[in-house]
């Protein structure tokens, strides 16, 4: 089984979010980056489990500049066999999907797997677009996957229940919580990762129809008011006069 896993980097969940002066770019100063947890914990680990059970290979792919290499090394340390970085700023989901699909076309992969979304821009769209570019079936938000020969049975969370689908390889999948469990890289893995190939390739030309116009931060949360549990009158008064909800 030949598997391609898309990994991206995202700011750490505790990072302070700010933008440049004209609000068109995310300010990365002082921000620590991590591998997108959905890519790492679910997509990559499930791919590794499949490889361990059935043989094959796991390649991770990232579209980004050289500063992403640490996150890529982490993927190799967790167990991927090799990695590809497409050397370009990941300007939009469509750009990223285009680049990954161009690479995937030549690779003859049985599955292309990504996390269900990145925890920064939350687009949840790259995997769908890759499927479209490759003209492959797309299963989103998979929470469980069993594979027999070339047939995969995938569970997806849907409102109020679960949907179970069957799909033949090759296909594109986005993985959600439940698909696998986080693996922490160990020291041997970290050292072995240095000897695994990380191929850097240049992007294909792409006329991006999408451009970011600007960002805004949500309005600050107002402070929490503590009310003495004995003082019901005060609580009612606040709900009525200040919150104006009763």
């Amino acid at each position: 089984m030949k598997l391609l896993v898309c990994v991206t980097q995202t700011p750490e969940t505790t990072a302070n979010i700010s933008f440049n002066a004209d609000n068109t770019e995310f300010n990365t100063t002082g921000v620590n980056f991590i591998m997108n947890p959905y890519d790492e914990w679910y997509a990559l680990v499930r791919a590794l489990e499949l490889k361990e059970a059935q043989g094959g290979s796991v390649t991770i792919i990232n579209v980004g500049p050289a500063t992403n290499d640490t996150v890529i090394r982490k993927g190799l340390a967790i167990g991927a066999d090799d990695a590809v970085r497409i050397n370009a700023e990941p300007k939009s989901s469509m750009f990223v999907a285009k680049q990954i699909s161009e690479y995937a076309k030549q690779g003859n992969f049985d599955m292309v797997i990504s996390g269900k979304e990145s925890i920064d821009y939350n687009g949840a769209s790259v995997a769908a677009m890759i499927a479209e570019y490759l003209d492959l079936p797309f299963i989103s938000f998979g929470t469980k996957m069993e594979v027999n020969e070339n047939i995969a049975i995938i569970n997806r969370d849907i409102e109020g229940g679960e949907e179970v689908v069957e799909v033949a390889t090759p296909f594109v999948l986005s993985a959600a919580k439940g698909m696998a469990e986080q693996r922490i890289p160990n020291m041997r893995g970290i050292m072995m990762a240095k000897r695994k190939p990380l191929n850097i390739i240049e992007p294909v030309a792409f006329d991006d129809p999408v451009a970011v116009v600007g960002y805004t931060l949500p309005s600050a949360k107002s402070a929490v008011k503590m009310v003495d549990p004995e003082d019901m009158d005060e609580l009612v008064r606040l709900l009525h006069e200040e919150a104006k909800i009763i």
Binding site: I34, D69, T70, R73, K74, A77, I184, P185, N186, M187, I190, M191, A193, K194
Partner: peptide, 10 residues
């Protein structure tokens, strides 16, 4: 270096 940071985070 990268080894140190990966080891630290792990």
């Amino acid at each position: 270096n990268e080894d140190h940071l990966l080891a630290r985070d792990a």
